[in-house]
């Protein structure tokens, strides 16, 4: 196992090259991304903690097996997020369940801050509803909103992760935000009227 000190200061691309010669260097990459990826997997797939960890292990092993297919025109982070996205989706399909959005409390605060929903419905703002509303949105909108506002990816990175044109990503984010706000307001109203 490589000492984590040795990983510091090395770029992802350098670590990829070293990992191809010596698998122990891959530990640096795995360690660098495990926290981000487990959060991402949790956000898009929900489920049990053990399932999420199994998915992450599969993601890391798959990334290692396909290291030579990594194209430096992409960021390594986009590439490994793409693997995480695809592995999560196929795990969800295997379980034959509808993907659920799972957000931590800090996720919901972050989301509310960045999407500005609080400003528009401040009097009745309810963090817990963010997860509920996001889960009700069409998957194509929720996945871009999560990547943009929780994983803080830029448009090109999101395009690379989801394999969509950048312009499409821009449209999905813009439309997704509108739909989210509308759905959020409707949910608040329904709750107020006891529906």
């Amino acid at each position: 196992m490589i000492d984590s000190e040795k990983c510091n200061g090395k770029t992802d691309e350098e670590l990829v090259t070293r990992s191809l010669d010596d698998s122990s260097w891959f530990f640096c990459l795995a360690k660098r991304y495990e926290e981000k990826l487990i959060r991402y997997i949790r956000r898009i797939s929900g489920g049990e903690r053990e399932d999420q960890e199994d998915i992450l292990q599969d993601v890391l092993i798959s990334a290692y097996q396909h290291l030579r297919s990594f194209d430096t025109r992409l960021k390594f982070s986009s590439w490994i997020y793409r693997i995480a996205h695809n592995t999560s989706i196929s795990a969800i399909r295997k379980r034959a369940i509808r993907p659920t959005v799972h957000l931590e409390e800090d996720d919901m605060q972050k989301f509310a801050d960045t999407i500005d929903v609080e400003k528009e419905v401040d009097a009745n703002f309810d963090h817990a509803l963010i997860q509920e509303v996001l889960a009700r949105l069409n998957e194509k909108y929720s996945e871009v909103l999560i990547l943009r506002y929780l994983d803080e990816k830029d448009y090109l990175e999101i395009a690379d992760i989801l394999r969509k044109p950048v312009s499409t990503v821009g449209n999905l984010i813009s439309r997704g935000k509108k739909l989210f706000k509308a759905e959020y307001e409707r949910t608040i109203m329904n709750k107020q009227h006891g529906k």
Binding site: M1, S23, S24, F27, A30, L56, Q57, L60
Partner: peptide, 11 residues
Amino acid sequence: NDIAKKALQRI
């Protein structure tokens, strides 16, 4: 941290 270790062990 365990997940990265476990993955490397499996590798």
